[in-house]
Design a binder for these strands. Structure first.
Length: 116
DNA sequence: AGTTTGACAGTAT
DNA sequence: GATACTGCCAAAC
């Protein structure tokens, strides 16, 4: 297996680990996760990682939204409205325009330690 | 090997 | 604020 594939896999696992640490009732963003992992230009790859998340990783991907609070990954959770329903069930509130109230629910992750 | 795509984000207006 | 435009980079084609 090529080395670059290996680093990509490690990045993905780091994403899942960090996402598992998002508290119930909170959300964070793709860019924030990338930054916390020391890869500030890889926000899109965070979305990519979540998109292909294996079941066994069991990371609450619905708690990741885009910068402005839009549920850009909604399509990955079945019927329209599912992702929002999951968040609402955890206590996340939305604005009238359908975006998450980031002022109340944005969560800033603690930087992840580097792995050997 | 070149092009397109996508669960993004920064900057300018 | 909201658009529009630009940078970004791994995967898929």
């Amino acid at each position: 297996m090529h080395p670059d594939v290996r680093v990509a896999r490690r990045f993905q696992r780091d994403v899942y680990t960090l996402v598992r640490s998002i508290p119930v009732g909170k959300v964070t963003t793709y860019g924030t996760i990338a930054l916390a992992l020391g890869a500030p230009r890889h926000a899109r790859q965070v979305g990519q990682a979540l998109s292909g998340q294996p079941e066994y990783e069991d990371a609450p991907a619905h708690r990741v939204v885009n910068r402005s609070g839009v549920l850009t990954g909604e399509h990955a959770f079945g019927p329209p409205g599912t992702m929002r329903a999951m968040l609402e069930q955890e206590g996340v509130t939305f604005q009238e325009d359908g975006r998450v109230d980031m002022r109340r629910h944005f969560w800033e992750p603690f930087p992840l330690e580097d792995e050997p």
